[in-house]
Computed example of a mutant assay.
Amino acid sequence: MSGGPSPQGDYVAAKRHGGLIYTAGMTPRESGRMMFEGPVHSGEIEAHREAVRLACANALRAAEDRLEVGEEIAAVLTMTVYVWAEEGFGAHSKVADFASAYLREQLGDRGICSRCAIGVAGLPGNAPVEIQLVAAL
């Protein structure tokens, strides 16, 4: 590994099988420290842009850490974005748009993927968002 995100439990950050790489769910951590905490509130979606981008960057870095020399990610196939939000929140896809934009910025058309945005009652470390990717070589 080349310094990507470190697991916070008994799992690996990403697993490669054949031509696919599956990442664990990644939260907005830097050097193991949670940088953003608390639920997403209606009317404050923009305030969570950097948290989502950091979680997505961690997921992408975890996938890239599984590449061999000379390989690259051919495509991100799917992304799951878990959003811890206040009761009654309905803009999960708007939160996930920040992650989609990040992947497009980093990978161009290779970063455009299918996705699922899911509202949850809570996330590890009180993270507002957790992101999981499946990428193809």
Rank of each mutant, 00 (worst) to 15 (best):
A59K: 05
S93W: 03
P5A: 12
D10T: 05
A75T: 10
I73R: 06
G111Q: 02
A55C: 13
L133R: 08
Y82F: 13
G25E: 07
E37V: 15
A127E: 04
G108K: 02
P39T: 09
V52D: 00
G111R: 00
G90N: 14
R49I: 06
L103T: 00
E37C: 13
A57L: 10
P124Y: 08
G25I: 07
V81P: 00
I45H: 13
K94V: 07
I73S: 08
A127L: 09
I118P: 01
E30S: 13
H48C: 09
R49Q: 10
R29N: 11
R29Y: 10
I73Q: 09
A59M: 09
D10V: 07
A117V: 09
L77D: 09
L123T: 03
A75E: 12
I45S: 14
Q8C: 09
V83G: 05
G119D: 01
G111I: 01
M1G: 12
M35A: 15
L107Y: 06
C56W: 01
H41I: 12
P5F: 04
A121F: 08
E64D: 12
T23E: 06
A51M: 13
A24G: 01
H92E: 10
I131N: 05
N126A: 15
L133C: 10
L60V: 06
R49T: 08
Q8T: 11
D10F: 06
A13H: 00
V12K: 15
C116N: 15
G18F: 03
R104D: 01
G90D: 15
R115C: 09
T27K: 08
A85I: 12
E46T: 11
R53Y: 03
R49E: 09
R61E: 14
L54C: 06
D97M: 05
G108Q: 05
E68I: 00
C113S: 14
V81G: 02
D97S: 08
V95D: 00
A136R: 13
K94T: 10
A13T: 03
A117E: 14
E44F: 14
P128M: 08
G125L: 07
S100Y: 04
G119H: 01
E87A: 11
G9T: 05
R33Q: 13
G25K: 04
V81F: 03
G125C: 07
G119K: 02
T80P: 09
E50V: 07
H17L: 13
R104L: 04
G88T: 11
I45Q: 14
Y22L: 08
H17V: 14
T27Q: 12
Q106V: 04
V129M: 01
S42G: 15
H92S: 04
E46L: 13
L60E: 02
R115Y: 15
V129F: 00
D65M: 10
A117Y: 12
A96G: 03
G111E: 01
Q8S: 10
A117S: 14
G111A: 05
R16E: 01
V83A: 08
P7G: 03
E46I: 11
A62H: 03
C56N: 03
A74L: 14
P128N: 11
